[in-house]
Simulated assay, not measured.
Amino acid sequence: MNAPNRGLNIEWIPDSGFQLRKAGVQFDAVRVDGDDGRRLADLMEAIVGGEPGPVVTEANGRRAVYFLVPAGTTVRRAWPKGVLPFNAAAGSISYVPVPALLGRTWPISWRYPPTYPGRFVHTLILLNAACLLLG
């Protein structure tokens, strides 16, 4: 058991700092930048009545918000403008920043940390919420 991972034993979460993880292996991700990403995270929380699954935020640059969804679920979906899927589709290699659960991880942090292995944001709920919010 890994103390820095609060006993969750999720292999893709680093022990300290943050690391890049290849999308499409353990998870896909959906990135929405800036205030739109934060509004989408708030909407997801409201829709599901609590934490929506693992969501990572950046404090600088694009101020990106990454919604971690099950691997392979972002491919061949019509995402609205301003939404960028990260996956391992043919001809696509994407990396997602993943912070440790504890310690210094700035500028990357968990908006909603993982609660147990295999728990991710529900892709179809996210897609519908993104279409509602972003058109």
Rank of each mutant, 00 (worst) to 15 (best):
A90M: 13
V98P: 05
I125N: 10
G37E: 05
Q26P: 14
G50I: 12
P117R: 03
G53K: 06
V55M: 02
D15L: 14
A90N: 09
R104D: 15
A3P: 15
P113V: 09
A78D: 13
R119E: 13
P70A: 02
A29F: 10
V121K: 00
K22L: 14
V55Q: 01
R63V: 14
A71E: 06
L124N: 12
R63Y: 13
D33L: 08
F86Q: 05
G7S: 04
R62C: 07
R39Q: 06
I10F: 05
I125K: 10
A64L: 10
T74N: 04
P14I: 13
V121W: 03
T123Q: 03
N87C: 12
P54Q: 07
S16V: 15
F27G: 01
R119L: 14
I47W: 04
I125A: 14
L124E: 15
N5I: 13
V96L: 06
V75K: 07
E51G: 15
A59V: 10
G37A: 05
P4V: 12
L133N: 00
V25Q: 09
P99G: 01
D28L: 09
I10S: 00
R76H: 11
T73G: 06
A89G: 14
G91I: 11
K22E: 15
P52D: 01
P113Y: 06
G72N: 07
G49W: 12
T73F: 11
V65P: 04
P113T: 08
I108M: 02
S92P: 09
V69C: 02
Y116N: 08
L20S: 10
L133S: 00
